[in-house]
Structure formats: structure tokens, C-alpha cells
């Protein structure tokens, strides 16, 4: 009898809810950006506004649903992009080795030495910000971890007999790297990617909070946090709702990533 995996089930529930938010925002939150300055700030439980409204009279709950998209899509792009960059460069560094490995490893070390959020702030400030600029900068800054993980995993595979058999068959290096090694490294890279989504979510929210990232008026959890700070006395919901959403989503993704990583490691150990 196989034990039911509790962790991924627990993590799947909030992730499913967030996914529904992202996809269904326009139906679930049609009035997210509707302003009503006569109403202004109202506390949670106000008629028709479960978590109250902000100073522009926008419904906090609807705003939070609408904000799920920018909170989640950017981090997913960052994580997938940095995984692909990491797999490509990590495989080259790990399998070809030599000077190329040295250059790529030093490049990764350099990026790792930089304070991520600070660099993102500077670049976003220099090129006049914007959501996708922030995404691109974070993508590059996230990639060194993926490069290192992929490189290590590739090096572990490269000495295995099945790779030596492929070499004896005189297969090309490209074929060995991408047809033989890559599929066996992919599970580890995917687990890392999930963890990166969580880190990127927090990083993106932090940048939005500081005023970088999404433009004014766009629904976004980080921005809601920053806007809601001043309202905390009048409507605690303006801070607590987006704050909790960030925490729960990041934690759920983290749990899922950890669980996957453990599973892959166990499978690796059995081989």
C-alpha cells in the first residue's frame, strides 16, 4: 500500500485557486479597477466589499484576484527562462569542460555575487522600468543557480557507462549532450524551476512594493502592499489580503518544488 503524498496535495489547493484567479480574473473580478472615490476607504465587511476598499474605492478582493496575473506570470517566465538558460550553459560547461567551463563558471560566480534586488532596481531605474524589463533582469540574475545545478548534474551523468557507450558508438557531442544527458538532467532542473518561481514571486513583489515593475493603476500584489501601507488603520484588508496571497502562493510552490526535488533525488539514489 503506497502512502498518500500529503505535501503535494496540500500545496495543490492554493495553487489551483491562484491559477483560477489568473485565468478567470475578468469574470471573477470584473470591477477590479472600477474607482469610486466617494466611497473611498472602507473596512472589511462593508456591504458588497468583503475585504473593504482602498482610498480609490476599489474592491480589495477583486483587485487581489486581478493582481494574481502580474504576480504569477512574471515569476513563471523568469523561472522557465532561467531554467532553459541554465540547462543550455550548464550542459555545455559540464560536458565540454575545459576553458568553456571556466568562463561559464566564473560568469555564474560573478552573477551570484551580485545582490539581486539591488541590481534589478538599478537597471529598472536606468532604463525607465517596466514590468518586462524587470522580468528580463531577474531572469538573467536567477540563471547562475540553474547553471550550477545543471552543470553538476551533467557532470554526474557524464561518467556513467551509458554515456561512455554512446562515446564508443562515436556519437557526436551535440547528440550525447542533448539526446542522452539532457533528458536525465531535466527532472532536477524542473524541480529547481518550481523553487525559483517562489523566489521570483517574492522578488517581483518586493520590486513592485518599491515602485518598480508594474505601472500605476495596474493590479498587483506587491503594489497593493505598498499602496495599502497608509490605509492599515482604516482597512487592514488592503495589506493583509495581498500579503497573505504572496506568502501562501510562495509557500505552496516551495513545498511542491521541495517535494519534487526529494522524489527525484530518491529515484536517482535507487539507480
Amino acid at each position: 500500500m503506497k502512502r498518500l503524498p500529503i505535501t503535494p496535495l496540500v500545496a495543490a489547493v492554493p495553487l489551483a485557486v491562484v491559477a483560477v484567479f489568473v485565468v478567470g480574473a475578468q469574470w471573477l473580478a470584473p470591477d477590479a479597477t472600477t474607482q469610486d472615490i466617494y466611497t473611498g476607504v472602507t473596512p472589511p465587511g462593508t456591504d458588497g466589499h468583503l475585504f473593504g476598499t482602498d482610498q480609490l474605492g476599489r474592491d480589495i478582493w477583486q483587485l487581489s484576484i486581478a493582481g494574481a496575473g502580474s504576480a504569477v506570470i512574471g515569476p513563471i517566465v523568469i523561472a522557465i527562462g532561467s531554467m532553459m538558460l541554465g540547462l543550455l550553459l550548464g550542459t555545455l560547461a559540464g560536458y565540454i569542460g575545459g576553458g568553456l567551463d571556466l568562463v561559464l563558471s566564473k560568469y555564474a560566480d560573478l552573477l551570484l555575487a551580485l545582490p539581486t534586488t539591488l541590481i534589478a532596481l538599478v537597471v529598472a531605474g536606468l532604463v525607465d522600468g517596466g514590468y518586462w524589463v524587470t522580468v528580463l533582469v531577474l531572469l538573467v540574475l536567477f540563471s547562475p543557480t540553474d547553471i550550477r545545478i545543471a552543470r553538476g548534474a551533467v557532470m554526474a551523468q557524464a561518467t556513467r557507462p551509458y554515456i561512455e557507450s554512446a562515446r564508443v558508438l562515436q556519437l557526436s557531442r551535440t547528440r550525447i549532450m542533448f539526446r542522452h544527458i539532457l533528458p536525465n538532467v531535466l527532472p532536477i532542473a524542473l524541480a529547481t524551476m518550481l523553487l525559483n518561481v517562489a523566489f521570483a514571486l517574492v522578488a517581483m513583489s518586493a520590486l513592485s512594493f518599491l515602485g518598480f515593475g508594474v505601472g500605476p493603476g495596474t493590479p498587483d500584489w506587491g503594489r497593493q502592499l505598498s499602496d495599502g501601507r497608509d490605509l492599515i488603520g482604516q482597512n487592514w484588508g488592503a495589506v493583509v489580503v495581498p500579503g497573505l496571497l504572496i506568502i501562501i502562493t510562495a509557500a505552496a510552490i516551495n513545498l511542491m518544488g521541495d517535494w519534487l526535488q526529494e522524489r527525484f533525488e530518491q529515484r536517482g539514489a535507487q539507480r
Partner: peptide, 15 residues
């Protein structure tokens, strides 16, 4: 061509 000792690691698990 060569045949190794441990057949499990001599075959690509993904293929």
C-alpha cells in the same frame, strides 16, 4: 564495442 559490468547504468534510463 564494449559491454560494461552494470547493465542498469549502461543503458540510458530515458530512452
Amino acid at each position: 564495442q564494449i559491454v560494461f559490468q552494470d547493465p542498469t547504468s549502461a543503458l540510458n534510463p530515458a530512452m
